[in-house]
Amino acid sequence: MPKFNEHEKQHIRELLLNKGKELFVQYGLKKTSIDDIVQACGIAKGSFYRFFPSKEELYYEILRQEEAFTGDIIAELKGLDLPPAQLIEKLFYDSFQAIERSPFLSMVMRGYDWAQLIRKLPPEAMEEHTEADQQLGRELFAKWQKEGKLAPLDPDVITGMLRAVLLLSQHRQELGPLFDDIIVQLIRSIALGISAKPEKAPRS
């Protein structure tokens, strides 16, 4: 088995991630074999296992990288001084746009590969993934509640609302030509509904 220096390891790992993503988007997890991946990368099959124990582990790592957009959006929002409803609206809409821009995430949201991924990955990996998603939303929404920007709802419920909006990205065809307007108005309505309402001044 060939030995790789650190530069070669980094190059091969990036190649596996990039070519793997292309193949998964084109054929799905089930129909993409490790042979397909190594052939696209121009490496030996044995070399694949030096980086990932299975194609599911490769798929999962690609998923983690693609979902990194959430951290970027949250970091941007922290530096903005916007009214609560606009802040929430931007979070929801930017997240929705990120899903629409990513063929890989769009595929994942359709759920085609999810059952196989759950079966093949170690249970602790899936639990960690689910908890990491929840925790990110939980911390942000709890912070906004303390700052008086959000209504006193369960942060996990708000995270679930965000996920429900993201799932709508797969129903563009069913909703027809008004899809974009529907999404904008839906997100705006949610943002207005869950943002903290300013207290009314007492009557004199």
Rank of each mutant, 00 (worst) to 15 (best):
W144P: 03
A151Y: 04
A164Q: 08
E131A: 10
L117V: 04
E139D: 15
L168G: 02
L121A: 01
G160C: 03
D154S: 04
A125Q: 13
T159M: 08
A164F: 06
E128K: 13
L166M: 08
E139Y: 05
T130P: 05
E128S: 11
V157Y: 11
L167K: 12
Q134S: 11
D133M: 09
I183G: 00
E174A: 10
Q173F: 11
K143Q: 14
Q145K: 07
L166C: 06
K149V: 02
P123G: 02
P177H: 09
H171R: 10
S169C: 04
R163I: 07
P122D: 07
R119D: 14
R172H: 05
E147M: 03
G148N: 06
I183H: 00
K120D: 11
A164M: 11
F179M: 00
Q135T: 12
P123T: 07
E124N: 09
G148Y: 01
L117F: 08
I158Y: 03
L117C: 11
E124R: 09
E131G: 06
E124D: 14
L167S: 10
E147W: 04
H129D: 15
S169R: 06
I182T: 07
E139S: 09
D154Q: 03
Q134H: 10
L136K: 13
D156N: 10
K146T: 11
G160L: 05
L117P: 01
L162Q: 09
I158H: 01
R163D: 13
L168E: 03
I183L: 00
R138M: 10
R119M: 12
R119E: 15
R138D: 08
P122I: 03
K146M: 13
Q145T: 09
G148L: 07
P155Y: 03
A132E: 15
Q170N: 14
A125C: 12
L162V: 10
L178H: 14
S169D: 01
T130R: 14
L140S: 01
E147F: 02
L117S: 13
A151I: 04
G176V: 00
D156F: 10
D154C: 06
R138H: 09
R163P: 03
E128H: 11
F141C: 01
E128T: 09
L175M: 09
E127L: 11
F179I: 00
L167C: 11
A164K: 06
Q170G: 14
R138W: 14
S169G: 04
F179D: 00
R138F: 10
D181G: 08
V157K: 08
L121M: 07
L117K: 02
L167Q: 14
I118D: 10
E124T: 11
Q170R: 14
K120S: 12
E124G: 06
G137A: 07
M161I: 15
Q135G: 06
G160R: 04
R172Q: 06
L140E: 00
L168W: 00
Q173V: 11
P122Y: 01
A132Q: 13
I158K: 02
Q173H: 14
H129I: 03
A132T: 13
M126S: 13
L121K: 02
L117M: 15
I183S: 00
I118L: 12
G160S: 07
Q145G: 05
L153Q: 05
A125E: 15
E139N: 06
